[in-house]
Every structure is written in C-alpha cells, then in structure tokens.
C-alpha cells in the first residue's frame, strides 16, 4: 500500500525526478524547523525520524536536549505517528520507557495534524506537565505531593541525562 504521499513522494510519473524523495511535509519540516525542535528522517528509512527537543525555558527541563524517536506508521496521516523519548526524563506524562501520554497521539489524533504540530505539542507538554492524567504514576504522585521536590528531581535528571 502506498506510502503517505505527504511524507514520501512517489518517484515515478513526476516530470523531473526529485532529488530527494521526501514528501511535502518532510521537506517543509526540514526547511522551516520549529524553534527548539530538530527532526530528521533516517536516510535509509524515511518513516523514521531522529528528533531532538530542547527543554523549554522556565521549565524544569530548560537547558536539556531530549532525544526522541518518531515513527510514521503505514496509515499515517490517518493514524498518529508513534513517538517515544529516548532520553530519560522525569515527567508525570512520560514513563520510564519514554512513552508519552498525549491525547493527540491517541484518540484525539487528526489527519490534519503533522509531525511538526505533534512535536510542538510535546514541547508544550514539557512546559506544562499534567499530573492529573499521569502515565508514570510515581512521578505524578511525587509531583502532586511535593511539586517543588519533583521539579527539583526533574532538573537533576535533566542535568544528568540531557546534557
């Protein structure tokens, strides 16, 4: 079945073969990167992106640069991309394995969303952790019980893992 056209252009049929077989979305993502976000597709697999998100200012993650992996499933954009933190992070909505609790990555996904919007949402999630909808329960508990201590831990983790 077809590759999502907005990610990977079909190579045949075009009047002049594109130098890069990437689709419009990928091209734009590279050409106009969102501030603090860097996403590049693997050369051997255009569905697989190496992503780096800088920790937002005024957040416990400031100063850190977090690596993520992003994978576009077969039925993207009808289905959401799969995103995971590779860098360890202390965050109530991100678990030990790097999985992210974000509604647009699940049931609130819309095909009108893009890689860029997803990564921006993740960046926003770093700014505003939401312990009421936790994925890492112990972190969320900590965050609710003692937010200052939790933020402190987060900063330590950032310094430790994301430098």
């Amino acid at each position: 079945m077809a590759l999502p056209k907005r990610i990977i252009k079909a190579s045949g049929g075009a009047p002049h073969p594109p130098r890069c077989p990437m689709g419009a979305e990928t091209e734009r993502l590279i050409a106009e990167p969102a501030p603090g976000i860097d996403a590049r597709p693997h050369e051997d697999n255009l569905r697989y992106f190496d992503v780096v998100i800088n920790g937002p200012a005024q957040s416990p993650f400031e100063g850190g640069s977090f690596k993520l992996e992003l994978f576009l499933p077969e039925d993207y954009p009808m289905a959401p991309p799969k995103v995971r933190f590779l860098t360890k992070i202390y965050h109530p909505n991100i678990d030990k394995l790097g999985r992210i609790c974000l509604d647009i990555l699940k049931d609130k996904w819309s095909p009108a969303l893009q890689i860029r919007t997803v990564l921006l949402s993740i960046q926003a999630l770093l700014s505003a952790p939401n312990p009421d909808d936790p994925l890492a329960n112990d972190v969320a508990h900590h965050w609710k019980e003692n937010e200052k201590a939790a933020i402190q831990t987060a900063k330590e983790w950032t310094a430790l893992h994301a430098k």
């Binding site: 999502p4 056209k5 954009p77 095909p111």
Partner: peptide, 8 residues
C-alpha cells in the same frame, strides 16, 4: 490548493 491532510 493542497489538501491539508494529504498535502496534495
């Protein structure tokens, strides 16, 4: 213009 979903 292009479709916001498939970008075509």
């Amino acid at each position: 213009r292009e479709c916001p979903i498939c970008f075509e």
